[in-house]
């Protein structure tokens, strides 16, 4: 096990952060940590990294207790924070030099390799960086000491689609080398591209741990249809508003469309289930 938590709980005073999280992540796994904003993703990550002291419960990374052996854990861990704040007054080169010196396992070769994939203007001060450039620098610093575990808090925010692709390719390469990854996100489609397994967190509680295949089977379409008549389809819960009927189709689309054909349709919209809708539909 690379990460193991037992009833990990964090309260901010009386305000709940996360409650009784118990999960484990194996070596070589890409674990997607999914939940809407404010569900407790960042709290979990910050607790695992020792920024926050757990209120109760335990967590082990590489079998080491996060409350006692954090330095050993950090030697082998890389981190991309959700809100990336780098030292604006430093050039990227100075920043990477500084952090490289703080890490025993700093790997010059690895850095070169990263800089080829995620090129950033090394001589420019970081405050002059665009969001995408900063994010690239965040990725570089997280991987440049060849860590065994990389914890990422919404890492693709700010990356354009092309770079996102590059980033995912890079993660897949790293996975082949046996690296373990923990990626939080509030976007299902983002996590499902890359993860092996997904944990879903809602209101501070872990409500599901699923293989990605199982989660994918929970996909569906939202159908919004405007008709003159009232729609009634057996086995499907519908909601009505201003002549529009909304419902979720999870299987057998063909069947539904054929049934809808009986009605006189004025307008129709079909969309992917959003994460929130998946939550509403499956994990209520």
């Amino acid at each position: 096990m690379i990460i193991e938590t037992e009833n990990l709980t964090k309260y901010y005073g009386k305000i709940r952060g996360v409650e009784d999280l118990s999960f484990s992540i194996e070596k070589g796994e890409i674990f997607g940590f999914l939940g809407p904003n404010g569900a407790g993703k960042t709290t979990t990550i910050r607790t695992l990294l020792g920024f926050l002291r757990p209120t109760r419960g335990k967590a082990f990374i590489f079998g080491k207790d996060i409350e006692k052996e954090m330095l050993e854990i950090k030697e082998l861990t890389g981190y991309i924070p959700g809100e990336l704040n780098l030292y604006g007054d430093l050039t990227a080169k100075d920043f990477l030099d500084y952090f490289g010196k703080l890490r025993k396992n700093f790997d010059e070769k690895k850095l070169k390799e990263l800089l080829e994939i995620f090129d950033v203007p090394l001589k420019r001060k970081i405050k002059g960086y665009s969001r995408g450039m900063k994010q690239k620098l965040g990725i570089i610093q997280a991987f440049m000491h060849n860590p065994e575990l990389i914890i990422m808090d919404e890492p693709t925010a700010g990356l354009d689609p092309l770079l996102q692709g590059k980033f995912y390719d890079y993660l897949r390469e790293e996975k082949k080398e046996g690296k373990t990854m923990f990626i939080s996100s509030h976007i299902l489609t983002e996590v499902e591209k890359i993860s092996d397994r997904v944990g879903i967190i809602k209101d501070g509680n872990l409500i599901a741990l699923e293989n990605i295949e199982a989660l994918k089977s929970k996909k569906g379409k939202v159908v919004k249809v405007k008709t003159k008549e009232k729609i009634k389809i057996r086995g499907i819960k519908t909601e009505e508003e201003n002549g529009w009927t909304t419902f979720v189709v999870t299987k057998n689309v063909d069947d539904i469309i054929k049934k809808l054909a009986k009605y006189s349709i004025e307008d129709i919209e079909i969309g992917e289930l959003s994460l929130e809708e998946i939550f509403m539909h499956y994990y209520r």
Binding site: Y79, P81, L86
Partner: peptide, 14 residues
């Protein structure tokens, strides 16, 4: 305040 502490603390330094 600038949240750079997150980055600094992600290094193996106490």
């Amino acid at each position: 305040e600038n949240k750079t502490i997150d980055m600094l603390l992600s290094n193996p330094v106490s």
